[in-house]
Simulated assay, not measured.
Amino acid sequence: MSIPDRPFASYHLWSLVAPATGQERWHCQMRRGFVKARQHEPQVKALLGKATPPQRIGILAQKGVYEFHHHRHLLKQSDGVDQVAKLLQLSHTDREVQQRVRQILQKYHNAPLLLNKNILQLTPGDEGFPKPILIDQDDYCFRLYAAMDCVFIDSDRTLHILDFKTGKAAFDQRQALVYLLAARYLYPGREAVASFYNLELCKKSELIRINHHELASLEFELAHIAQQHQRDLQKYHQETGDFSKIFPPNPGSHCRFCPFRTICDFADLKQPQGHSMPILKGLGARG
């Protein structure tokens, strides 16, 4: 199996390498191994291709926002929610997904966050991997992937990157930082901010900003993550039998929520003892 010549980084990879604050006990490097080193194996590929209800809800909710603004007249029509639901083929999904997505559509129809915004980019959420940004410095070179849900211009001319969320998982500021680094290359010279918006809870995050010194430090950290991950991939492809050494497992009750539990030799599927894992928005592979 070939390995890409140039290292890459993304928020998704960062989240697989290092846990978000407060999620340390649930973090497992073996998950990174399945997602990034063994993704082409038939069993792993099948699991990665199977969308969970949280994933379907997240994708359909974002696509619903896209359809509302692609067909802006629907925001003013009384049957706008029904029309978008038809465009999403919502009736073909299971009951839980239908109910939650319809509630999200209704909330957005009642209070459309992006109404009258100067939108530069709004994605449907199912477009796959974005075009990589080549970051080439004296000390490092890597490809950066950053799939932005929405980019618009604020009234003060600031570039605003907005990421949509669903479910109950906390916002991870690292994702916004990656987007701000990407904006440095995609929109050079523009002042940029980033924020999150939970479409299900109608909850906004605070604006996230980063200065030039912090951007440089972030870029260096992502370069290190990209290079270390590339070395891990090379080690694995040289000796596939060392999978569990290169990507060590962290078994526990959280294994019950892992998509790879059925094929993992280290999965702990015992009933949890008083602890539960927060509901996350699927594998989050784009960002």
Rank of each mutant, 00 (worst) to 15 (best):
A20S: 14
A20G: 13
A20C: 12
T21I: 10
T21W: 06
T21K: 14
T21S: 11
T21F: 10
G22W: 08
G22M: 09
G22Y: 07
G22C: 04
Q23H: 13
E24V: 14
R25T: 03
W26H: 14
W26N: 12
H27Q: 08
H27W: 07
C28D: 05
C28E: 01
C28V: 02
M30T: 05
R31C: 06
R31T: 12
R31Y: 10
R31E: 13
R32K: 11
R32A: 11
G33K: 06
G33I: 06
F34Y: 12
F34E: 04
K36S: 12
K36I: 15
A37Y: 01
A37H: 02
R38G: 03
Q39E: 10
Q39Y: 10
H40L: 10
E41V: 02
P42H: 12
P42Q: 13
V44M: 12
K45S: 14
A46Y: 15
L47R: 08
L47T: 05
L47K: 02
L47W: 02
G49A: 10
K50C: 14
A51P: 05
T52Y: 08
P53Y: 08
P54Y: 08
Q55A: 14
Q55F: 13
Q55S: 15
R56K: 13
I57W: 07
I59P: 00
I59E: 10
I59Y: 06
L60Y: 09
K63W: 02
K63Y: 02
K63M: 09
G64P: 06
G64Y: 04
V65P: 00
Y66W: 11
Y66T: 03
E67C: 01
H69Y: 05
H69W: 04
H69Q: 03
H69N: 02
H70F: 11
H71C: 02
R72T: 07
L74R: 12
L75D: 07
Q77K: 12
Q77A: 12
S78Q: 15
S78N: 15
S78K: 15
D79S: 14
D79F: 03
G80Y: 00
V81P: 07
V81Y: 03
D82S: 04
Q83I: 00
V84R: 00
